Amino acid sequence: MPVPLSVLDLSPVLSGGDVPAALRNSLDLARQAETFGYARYWVAEHHFTEGVASAQPAVLLAAIAAATSTIRVGSGAVQTGHQTPLSVVEQFGMLDALYPGRVDLGLGRSGQRRVEALQQLAEEAQRPAPKPPVPARVVDGLLIPSPFSFAHLVASPRWALYARLLQQPGAQSPGFTEQVQEIEDLLGDGVRGDEGIVARAVPGAGARPELWILGSSGGESAQVAGARGLPFAANYHVSPSAVLEAVEAYRASFRRSARLARPWVMVSVDVVVAEDADQARHHASPYGLWVRSIRAGGGAIPFPTPEQAAAHEWSEPDRALVADRVDTQFVGTPEQVAEQLATLQRVTGADELLITTITHEHAARVRSFELLAKEWLG
Rank of each mutant, 00 (worst) to 15 (best):
P2E: 02
V3P: 12
P4D: 05
L5T: 11
S6L: 07
D9E: 13
V13H: 04
V13D: 07
L14S: 13
A21S: 15
A22D: 13
L27W: 00
D28F: 00
Y38A: 05
Y38I: 12
Y38L: 13
Y41E: 02
V43Y: 10
E45G: 07
H46D: 03
P57E: 05
V59N: 05
L61W: 04
S69H: 15
Q79H: 08
G81S: 02
Q83Y: 14
T84C: 00
S87K: 04
E90M: 09
L98A: 13
Y99P: 02
V103N: 03
G106L: 06
G106I: 03
G108Y: 01
S110M: 02
Q112R: 04
Q112K: 01
L118V: 07
Q119W: 00
E123F: 00
E124K: 12
R127S: 10
R127H: 06
P128C: 08
K131A: 12
K131Q: 11
P133N: 10
P133Y: 01
V134D: 13
R137H: 00
G141D: 02
L142V: 06
I144F: 05
P147N: 13
A151F: 02
A151S: 13
P157K: 04
R158C: 01
W159M: 14
A163F: 10
Q167H: 08
P169S: 01
F176H: 04
E178V: 09
V180H: 05
I183T: 02
I183M: 05
L186N: 03
G190F: 08
G190D: 02
G193Q: 08
G193S: 07
D194H: 12
A199N: 07
A201D: 03
S216R: 08
S216Y: 03
S217P: 09
S217V: 09
A222E: 09
G226C: 05
G229E: 11
L230F: 08
N235D: 07
S239I: 12
S241W: 12
V243C: 08
L244A: 10
A249E: 03
R251T: 14
R251Q: 09
F254L: 08
R255D: 08
L260Y: 08
L260C: 03
L260H: 11
S268R: 04
V269M: 05
V269S: 15
V272T: 15
V273N: 14
E275Y: 01
S285A: 15
P286H: 11
G288H: 06
L289A: 10
V291Q: 14
R295A: 11
I301P: 01
F303N: 08
E307F: 10
E307Y: 13
Q308Y: 07
A309E: 08
H312G: 01
E313K: 15
E316S: 14
R319F: 11
V322S: 12
D324C: 15
D327F: 01
T328N: 13
P334I: 14
P334A: 08
Q336K: 10
Q336S: 15
V337C: 03
A338D: 05
Q345T: 14
T348W: 06
T348K: 06
L353E: 09
I358C: 06
A373K: 12
